[in-house]
Write a protein that binds this DNA or RNA. Structure first.
Lengths: 173, 173
DNA sequence: GACATTAGTTAGCACAACTAACTACAATGG
DNA sequence: CCATTGTAGTTAGTTGTGCTAACTAATGTC
């Protein structure tokens, strides 16, 4: 009944007070997505939330992270429609409308109407957009690059694999 | 001179159109935090941005991700001051003021003034806050847990490493 | 040609981050 | 002992990013 009780309130005291008998290892039944995976999910969520925050704090050549990401997608996709772009970036259409509006205002992209289907608008990078993308790329990953430079050789190789994993986690639906 | 050209604008066309002669492989110089690390940093940044977006879309027992993270920190730290909490969460003081105000309004935490230094305010979890933290923990990492369930045994082990890496990347200054 | 579908936009909401400027209290030093 | 300096937190205002609901305009279909 007492809500503040015996076992760790949330079950994931990193750095636990060491005054806790640790009730029982409770190893998971063979394979069910048990406690341990759950704790892992939480830690991953928290780490991602914070890292994201840090990344937003770094300016990316004057672009917001969302703009920077969208710019990258446009570069990759060539002349996507707004819908394709929204899909690629996993945002809803209105969000992409606004994002692109801002980038157009800033001269990073050009919008143009599709010939075949006049409901459709496409975007492509402007020369300025390409320059900016290069700048972001070359100079503005400073934070992560610096942080990663602190890793040793082997860890850095690992980082590559792990990034791929992360991409996979976020990718499929 | 012409800004639009010859080499790939940003140097990381995943899935290039295949209609492109691919000017020259341009392999990176040996070891300096060069192109390759830079590309990795970009990919990591993009993946984190997107995953974060996905996570925000998932509700966490009615809390925002920031609230959820802060709740976790409070649980870990006990009775932190707002400043300590802001530091832990790597946000500016005003952000933490508002975050805590919201959590207090929602009955998740209790604010109280420090005895020694009356400029200082501390927070602790309420019973409700503890319950919510449990709920978040047990039930509401659905998205990530689900995504991770799709991984095989060995990949899941790597997910753990990934998380540790992210924690390290975000941790030190 | 009426009707349904699709692409994108507009409007309005909520949240999360920031900086600058402020209040309240504490600590220090003539 | 009080004036100054420093520190903790708040208030105000801005920006960015996401959403849903409701709309316009074009397309496709029967």
């Amino acid at each position: 009944m007492d809500p503040a009780r015996s076992t760790d309130p949330a079950g994931w005291a990193e750095r636990r007070p060491a005054s806790d008998p640790a009730p029982a290892p409770v190893e998971a039944p063979p394979h069910v997505p048990g406690e341990r995976d759950d704790e892992l999910a939480t830690r991953l969520r928290v780490a991602v939330t914070r890292l994201n925050r840090r990344l937003r704090q770094q300016s990316l050549a004057g672009l917001s992270p969302s703009q920077a990401a969208a710019l990258g997608s446009i570069n990759r996709l060539g002349t996507p429609t707004l819908g394709e772009l929204a899909l690629a970036e996993q945002v809803q259409p209105p969000t992409m409308t606004r994002l692109v509006a801002g980038m157009e205002r800033d001269g990073l992209v050009v919008r143009f109407q599709d010939e075949q289907d006049r409901r459709v608008w496409r975007v492509r990078l402007s020369a300025e957009g390409r320059r900016t993308l290069q700048r972001i790329h070359r100079l503005k990953n400073a934070f992560l690059t610096r942080q990663m430079a602190a890793l040793d050789e082997e860890e850095r190789a690992r980082a590559r694999e792990l990034t791929e994993l992360l991409e996979r986690l976020v990718a499929d639906r």
